[in-house]
Design a protein around this nucleic acid. Sequence first.
RNA 1: GCGCCCUUAGCUCAGUGGAUAGAGCGUUGGCCUCCGGAGCCAAAGGCCGCAGGUUCGAAUCCUGCAGGGCGCACCA
Length: 559
Amino acid sequence: MRVMQEVQNQIRAALRAAVAAAAEAAGLTGPGPGKSHPEAPKEKAHGDLATNLALVMARGERKPPRAVAEAILRHLDLGGTWAERVEVAGPGFLNFFLKPGWLHQVLVAVQQEGENYGKSDHGQGKRVLLEYISANPTGPVVLVQARAGAVGSTLARLLNWAGYRCDTEFYVNDAGNQVKALARAVDLRARQLAGENVEFTGEYPAEYVIDCARDLLKQYPDFLQKPEEERLAFLERWAPEYFRAGQEEVLRRYGVVFDNWFSERKLRESGAVEALIQRLKEMGEAYEADGAVWMRTTKYGDDKDRVLVKSDGEYTYFCADAAYHLNKYERGYDLLINIWGQDHHGYQGRMKAMVQCLGRPPESLELLITQLVRLVKDGQEYKMSKRQGNIVELEDLLEEVSVDAARFFFLMRSLDSHMDFDINLANLASQENPVYYVQYAHARICSLLRQAEEAGYRVPDAASVRLEVLQDPAELDLLKKIAELPEEIIHAAESREPHRIARYVMDVAALFHAFYNRCRVLGAESEELTRARLVLADATRVVIRNVLGLMGVSAPERM
RNA sequence: GCGCCCUUAGCUCAGUGGAUAGAGCGUUGGCCUCCGGAGCCAAAGGCCGCAGGUUCGAAUCCUGCAGGGCGCACCA
């Protein structure tokens, strides 16, 4: 049950009726409550809900906003709503003050729904495929992909909680030239390790290729006995899988698990790429020129047409990607979301054009761009010198900070901010670290509930408690925040902004700590107050646990 | 040269058309006979990069400029 929404809907309905009535009596013609949702104002003096309806209507009515507000107010019937009174304020806002008690029913809802509190059917089961990370299987998972991992896995959960059916996928580029180059590099390193005097060609200079070759020889001691052609053919399969498996492993430790790993090689082998090219030619969306096959992406706003098949007969990456995205659509997804690093943002135009060449609307593909991450330690940019090439791996990050801290920190920032990741702050387990601040609130509640149990209390059935005794401002503020969770999740999912949920749970923790400091639970002024506060504390526990669960951060019962 | 992102408190960042611009860190001052002080309360600190424009109203939308990041392949 979305208590908040129910209250809003009541008031919207009352407003709609009032505008209609005012239209007859006072000559208002306006559209009524369309865009102007009643929202909780920042300032408490402005009521529990406020709408700018009159300000929005004023222009069309050619009347001062306050006059419009007065006209609506005269015809407003609040019967059957939670609103107690309403006033016109400021430039023409309508501020609603709700009956105490509307908030209390949220505690019943939280208790009933428990670990499901916050879910809704808002998305109506629309099918979404979220593709993220999709690191090349030629190396480890790096820092910016760690950011995408935290954001992607949380966004997927948010979408599912908001009533979408969202699957996640990792696209593995285990075909094409880079795989051949990788195979050559691994083979060369293996020969070097075996003592052969071969000169390094410069392909894939990173140390992890040497590690890979070492593991290869360990697993296949006779490897170098085979002829080169056979070795390379083998490595073109083995090496990408080696790295892919490594990526899967570290990502699992990091709390990122995919519904599906999609192989480009298998896609090519299925003939889907060839079929796509044929189809595009027949549709007139592709043509041959200069010995190559081109997609007519300029037709849909791209700067230039893009090559699908190079003059040497090889498919481009873009070509396989087109076949891949067509495949996504054919699997029945209504909406495709891809999270990319900023270094790929230049591909947005051609991707948008591509889906249109495939006959799909451009808005059926959403591209989210994460900005880059800078690691900062002791106030300076931190470069891990462990490896050649100065790449920072997810693995390295997890040696510096916990999974909880890493995920929480990435999730605090909006996707498009260029973020500094402060290792010192993330590691502060004993100071004002946002991760611990929230986790501490959870552990504190669990501790409270344990002590309550020892004192002979169990968390009572919310419906059997006089919740109206919760009247302290600290209690009401906390209740209000708890009531907002379902809307907050919908908002975060719809705007693709998981960071909202991190901010939200920090607010919940702060309000709980304030409440806890101000109001005694065990040994309150009355028995029924203790019982009501136990319900409130337990509801807070559920909310924090649910949100941290969405974020992939643990909610410890003791710290 | 073209395109995308960013510019808000000392630092790291929220806030995308509303009322007095927020949080964390840092700084300063208070709060434990009592449910976890990993906490709470309070204070100081801002021409929201600059200049125009739209609007009853702009940090938010539009235009221009400046600074920073990242891209502009028959690479992946």
